[in-house]
Design a protein around this nucleic acid. Sequence first.
DNA 1: CGCCGTTGTATCGCCATGGACATAACGATG
DNA 2: CATCGTTATGTCCATGGCGATACAACGGCG
Lengths: 240, 240
Amino acid sequence: MTVEKDYQTELTIGDVTIDRQDVEMLAAIDDHGSMHAAADALGRSYARLQRRVVALEDAVGAVTERRRGGADGGGTELTPVARDLLRQFERHQTELDGVARATASVFPGTVVDRTGELGTVETPVGRIVALVPADDSSVQVSVRSDAVVLSASSGSADGAGAKEQTTAQTSLRNQFTGTVAAIDAADAIASVTLDLGEGQSLQTVITRTSLERLALESGADVQASFKATAARAIPVAEDG
Amino acid sequence: MTVEKDYQTELTIGDVTIDRQDVEMLAAIDDHGSMHAAADALGRSYARLQRRVVALEDAVGAVTERRRGGADGGGTELTPVARDLLRQFERHQTELDGVARATASVFPGTVVDRTGELGTVETPVGRIVALVPADDSSVQVSVRSDAVVLSASSGSADGAGAKEQTTAQTSLRNQFTGTVAAIDAADAIASVTLDLGEGQSLQTVITRTSLERLALESGADVQASFKATAARAIPVAEDG
DNA sequence: CGCCGTTGTATCGCCATGGACATAACGATG
DNA sequence: CATCGTTATGTCCATGGCGATACAACGGCG
């Protein structure tokens, strides 16, 4: 039994919420130039569609310019407001698509310190500074794989010295060293799995160019860094 | 007229989708120990709630253990499967909450090169290597503020040399220099707005500790870096 | 063995959603 | 002025979601 994480995007303006169906409706009107043709194309009833357009305009303002009469009988065109709405919806959706599809690595831990939204979480692989939401002590820290920065661990300077230096001049608060456990390279993007020890692994997505530039290969040592604001702690229930 | 970006999280298992209402229902059953009490607490009808539980079990499997009879008349308890569902839903939601609340900076541009999912986008502030979805040339590049790494620009080495060196040993493909335009510091987290020139700005969220460590103040020069896999290009309609 | 409070199940009715259909208004064109 | 295809609006009806109610089944307990 597989569980699919899903979501429905929508835009709320005042007291109406525009969902995917509304967006498809507006797009169809834009495509066909009339509400009748749009309703026909969508397999919906004209009456319902027209009512919805009126409802939207009541709440949002002028969304369409509707003409009736004339040689062609009239027609309906979208206003810039409507096009802007379509753009915003599209962008909202693709943004969520992007972040929702991205894989994440999860580390169990306990919150040992807290300052405002920020906290320090004790995990098997060390302490992670992350965003901690409410007042929970038992949490899971989730790190999106597109937020993890890899850097060569075998540079000229090595060990704690290099680490100190790097953290001192960037805003990367979390830094771990690990060995490359697996590389899954596609055309332009490669997924790299790091073994951090203690049975914990960290997933990263980097470009193939970076993969080659860092000369990564299975078993190699690398440093993985990520910002505290990219790590999010999620409360976990105490029971099993 | 403000537009609120919103979304409804849900879990899809087979042919049923569990939405927030279902989750609240299960949680109420867990709280009160019986479906009657849960329906009462939620202000819903018992019949409807009971039907929903049956429907869920038809699709998901044993979600509750329902006993009838006995001194107390019986009761309903959640199975570990149900608790696991609740956890998954909660985690899914907080994950989306986290990334959806995060602000993002947007740069208009055109795709000038493409390799698989990856592409190079020409923007007013320079070229950005980003994930480009479909075959569009006119795009907007969106960079989440929690994915931007700041580093001191006024280090010992300066200019192109330092830039080359940094990019060579990390997986950060995009690097820009800018001046701090605004700092909005909260308890533990600060929002930093960079001016990249050409009327473009880049927003970043960093910890207050990093803010102090980098000695950032308005007008200071900093280097902002982000991974190509953290930048997403979104197609934009050609018309206005 | 009856009591009790719960779970199971069926049925009715209300109401919102939405399609099907009819009718009017509109305005350029012939 | 009639035509024509569209918009605008109202009415009817089917469907589904959901509350309300009723009744049976259950099983420990007094």
